[in-house]
Structure formats: C-alpha cells, structure tokens
Amino acid sequence: MSIDVLLSLMPPHVGAGSVIDWDATEKVWGSPFPTDYKEFVKHYGAGSIENFLAVLQPSPDGSGRMADETSVAQELWEELEGIPDVEAEPDRILAWAMDGTADLLCWMRTEDDPDEWPVVVYRRLEDAWQLYECGMVEFLTRVFRAEFPQNPLSSTAMWGVPTPLFLTRREATRIRESGRDPWEGVVE
C-alpha cells in the first residue's frame, strides 16, 4: 500500500519528518529497513499517533528507544516461543512502535527483502503474538479504517479513527508551551 493513502488520512504537520542517512544507519543496525517505513520517517519522523502509539526511529549509532524496545520484543518472542507454526528466531524481531497499553509492533525479518517483512504485534493484555501479512503503512491504514477482522491492538484508541493525528515530540511540546493541549479532541 502506498504512503499516499496514509498521507491523505493523516497529513503530517509542518516540520514533521526526519532526514536519515539510511546507508550508514542500516550498516550500524546490520539490517535494511522497509521502503514504506523509510517513507513514513521521511514524511512524519518519530512521534505519536493519537497520543497513543509511539512510532520509533533508528538512531545512527544503534542505541536508543528502538534498540531498547527491540530487545524487549526479542525477549518476549523467546519467552512465549513466538507464534505457533511460525519459524523465526528472536533476533529476527525488530520493533518499530509501542502503544499506551505496552503492545509492541514489530517486523518479523523473514525475507531478504525488507518490503516483504510482515508485521507482528505483541498484545500485552493477552500476552501473545499475532502475525499480519502486510507492511507498516498498510497495517496502520487498515487499523485507521478498521479493516482487520478484529482490532489488532489492546486499545481502541486508533481503531476506526478516520483522521488520526500525528505529532512529533517537538511539535507537541511547541503546542503545549503555547498554552494549548496538543491532543485536544483526541479521545483516550
């Protein structure tokens, strides 16, 4: 699914987006990243959707929040023995987001082509993993449109939200410092 669909549902604010040296970052991380994710980062950057889902961004030195959440996800994958009938070692799990209920949204790096990596979600409230045969942008779009048979996340904060709001931390802080609530109108 094209990033254009997501851009129309969730237009990025002025100043959103990050410029990343993907060649250097991928070398440090020892892995390429999916094209749709790179497009997401280009247009949005790291930040929050609906004051609920924190989308992570790789640091150029391989540390930081994405690395920390990936480590947690890999430990959970190993502890729960992944998903029945799905073969993947814990080191094949790479986190790209976490939500307000401590769900982890990850890729399962099963193919050489990162554009073929499915999304796997650890639902904290169920203490279980679920596989979704789509990429990050399609996953988010289908959550916003409520197109999965059931909500893949532990909360309905983004489920069926027709015009979700994305804010970088910098933009949320700027709005807050102006005396307004950056998430006004967002139902939690």
Rank of each mutant, 00 (worst) to 15 (best):
L125K: 11
R142W: 08
R145N: 15
L167C: 10
L131F: 10
D127T: 10
S155V: 03
E147F: 04
R169F: 07
L125R: 08
A157C: 07
Q150Y: 08
L125H: 04
L140R: 15
G135C: 03
A172G: 12
N151R: 07
E138T: 13
V120H: 04
L165W: 01
W129A: 04
E133C: 10
T173C: 07
V121Q: 03
N151Q: 05
W129V: 15
V137R: 00
P164Y: 02
I175K: 00
T168V: 04
T163L: 12
R124V: 14
Q130E: 12
R176M: 09
I175W: 01
S155N: 11
A146E: 07
I175S: 00
G160K: 04
V121Y: 00
T156G: 15
A157Y: 02
S154M: 04
F139L: 14
P152V: 12
P162T: 00
A157S: 11
E177V: 02
L140I: 03
P118F: 11
L125I: 05
E147D: 15
L165R: 14
N151D: 01
R169D: 14
T156W: 07
V143F: 00
R123L: 03
P162M: 05
V120K: 10
V161D: 00
G135W: 04
V119E: 11
R142A: 07
R124Y: 05
W159R: 06
T163G: 08
M158D: 00
S155L: 02
I175G: 00
T156K: 12
T156M: 09
W129L: 08
E126C: 06
R174M: 14
I175R: 00
E126A: 13
E171N: 08
P149W: 01
V137L: 02
R169A: 10
L167P: 05
L167G: 02
R169G: 15
T173D: 13
R142C: 02
L165Q: 12
T163C: 11
S178W: 05
S154A: 09
P118H: 03
L140Q: 09
V120C: 12
V143L: 04
Y132A: 08
L153K: 09
E138H: 06
L131P: 06
E177D: 14
Y122H: 12
N151K: 06
E147H: 05
A128D: 13
Q150R: 13
L140P: 12
P162D: 07
V161N: 00
M158L: 12
S155C: 06
